[in-house]
């Protein structure tokens, strides 16, 4: 089925700005679902609030657009209510890691079978360009005009430390890899985190002179490398892409360990 057959066409074209990376993530997610062969009625998409969270409205699955930061909590209820359904949670970096940080680490700790796709554009886009927990130190936002003082999270390390059993990172430039990683994340039985470095040319790009969507994607191409690549010996600043954690564990149930 073509990608657009998974969309609620009357809401397109979408609201995302020209050059925004979120549409690439949405398209990759659809391709992953198509590849796995899931029926539309078998998929629930639960989102929070922010640019990325508008994705739920476009997708022709069971969809839920919830509260800022709380998507994983709502999704936990959906998954425990219907464990047979595939529950995917598209989130932004502010949504997932600032206001939703507590729910994020606890979903990871439980290792509940949800797929969190975190579009990391390092900024709050919907409200006009404020700094997020993923804005690197020194970079500008409308609330940090002299550069942000706070250090950013390393999302991969955070997810690993909190106990997620599948953790991956890719970018919108690496579109084939993106689809493959989301596919693996959905197939994985446990809490799966896919960090997708996505571009916000309108706010993050403009305030930090990183250029338009094309230039920002060139940045993802030039400043990332596969896990274990020799390139990092010469350039340790390169951000690693790939699957960092992929562990088979018993599937979580709140019933816990049952005596035989």
């Amino acid at each position: 089925m073509p990608v657009k057959d998974y969309l609620r066409l009357r809401f397109l074209p979408h609201i995302w700005c020209p050059g925004c990376g979120h549409g690439i993530v949405m398209s990759g997610m659809i391709r992953a679902i198509e590849e796995i062969g899931l029926e539309k009625n078998e998929v629930v998409v639960v989102s929070g609030i922010g640019c990325s969270s508008r994705m739920a409205g476009y997708l022709d699955f069971h969809t839920m657009h919830t509260l800022h930061g709380r998507a994983l909590a709502f999704a936990t209820g959906v998954k425990l209510g219907r464990p047979d359904l595939t529950v995917i949670v598209p989130m932004g970096d502010g949504d997932a890691l600032a206001i939703g940080g507590n729910h994020f680490i606890h979903a990871a700790r439980r290792d509940i079978d949800l797929t969190a796709v975190i579009m990391n554009n390092r900024i709050y886009g919907m409200t006009g360009g404020q700094g997020s927990p993923m804005t690197p130190q020194g970079m500008r936002s409308t609330t940090a005009p002299r550069g942000i003082a706070d250090a950013a999270f390393d999302l991969v390390e955070l997810a690993k430390g909190a106990g997620a059993s599948f953790v991956a990172r890719t970018t919108t430039f690496h579109a084939t890899e993106l689809t493959r990683m989301i596919e693996k994340a959905i197939r994985h039985k446990g809490f799966s985190v896919v960090e997708v470095m996505s571009q916000c040319p309108t706010y993050y790009g403009r305030q930090n002179r990183l250029g338009n969507g094309v230039e920002m994607m060139k940045g993802f191409r030039d400043n990332t490398t596969s896990i274990g690549s020799k390139k990092r010996e010469a350039r340790p600043d390169l951000i690693e892409r790939g699957i960092f954690v992929d562990e088979d564990r018993p599937v979580y149930s709140p019933e816990g360990l049952k005596a035989d």
């Binding site: 639960v46 839920m64 709380r70 909590a73 936990t76 209820g77 959906v78 425990l80 209510g81 729910h103």
Partner: peptide, 11 residues
């Protein structure tokens, strides 16, 4: 999270 979770389950 408690209330959000039961709302998800209710649906």
């Amino acid at each position: 999270a408690s209330l959000c979770t039961i709302i998800g389950a209710s649906l």
